[in-house]
């Protein structure tokens, strides 16, 4: 007993002068275990060959298929149509540059953020490539890995009222990266250094604690506690206590 699904999909190609932003409606029969990835491919194959959307891994790993699903950010490849009502509205993630239809340039945004927040390990000295890497406590490695699971899908940015109002806000993805390097003993930076990067209203003090990011992160990263922890650390820095 399969449902007939109705898709209202945002269509607009900014590079085509004739294109106007609009919503197009498609219908198709739901199949067993159908994800939005399967549905979108079927629509593109059978009804709208020009429909633009991004996928790479189809397994919630690459972070390219984020979109607004009935108004809430999520990964299309990890969303079963069975979990959605008969009518499904798909929109591109807001806060990112639109490429076309459902495809947005999260990569450009993430790169800007990474450069600004210097999201790489700052070693004490140049690594000795011949030497054996220093061992790390398994718990410590676990803690870092937990935060490293971020796939840069951008859902936390689109779920954040602060990021929507203030395009220069680093967002949960950026703050989580800082938390990740703060937890890494190989990184020589200390809190006063991190304060230079996120100790302002574009950084951790801009976060209002609405937790859209935490609730909608498809990888279930512990953003709530990480941001709170970072906020306390950065406040200590401001007060000159670290």
């Amino acid at each position: 007993m399969s449902r007939r699904l109705t898709f209202d999909i945002f269509r607009y190609n900014p590079n085509d002068p004739k294109s106007r932003p609009r919503t197009e409606r498609f219908t198709l029969d739901e199949t067993e275990g159908m994800t939005l990835f399967i549905a979108l491919n079927q629509i593109r194959d059978e009804q709208a060959p020009s429909l633009a959307f991004d996928f790479v891994c189809r397994a919630g790993v690459c972070g390219s298929c984020g979109m607004l699903i009935n108004g809430r950010p999520g990964l299309a490849c990890r969303t079963l149509t069975a979990a959605l009502p008969d009518t499904i509205t798909l929109m591109p993630l807001p806060a990112f540059e639109l490429i076309a239809d459902l495809s947005v340039n999260t990569g450009k945004w993430m790169r800007g953020m990474s450069e600004r927040l210097e999201t790489w390990v700052h070693l004490e000295q140049a690594p000795e490539i011949d030497a054996l890497e220093l061992a790390m406590e398994p718990e410590q490695a676990e803690a870092i890995y937990e935060l490293d699971r971020c796939i840069e899908c951008g859902c936390c940015i689109s779920a954040c009222a602060t990021a929507r109002m203030h395009p220069e806000f680093a967002g949960a993805v950026g703050l989580n990266k800082i938390a990740r390097f703060r937890a890494d003993p190989r990184d020589r930076r200390a809190d006063p250094d991190y304060y230079q990067l996120v100790g302002d209203d574009q950084g951790v003090f801009g976060c209002m604690g609405l937790l859209g990011c935490h609730d909608l992160c498809p990888k279930k990263l512990p953003l709530q506690t990480q941001i709170a922890h970072l906020r306390r650390g950065m406040l200590k820095s401001a007060l000159g206590k670290s």
Binding site: D200, G203, S237
Partner: peptide, 16 residues
Amino acid sequence: QRMSNGPNATASPWPG
């Protein structure tokens, strides 16, 4: 947009 402040910059403590 604004890149990092660099090693010698001192961010204001006021936001904190």
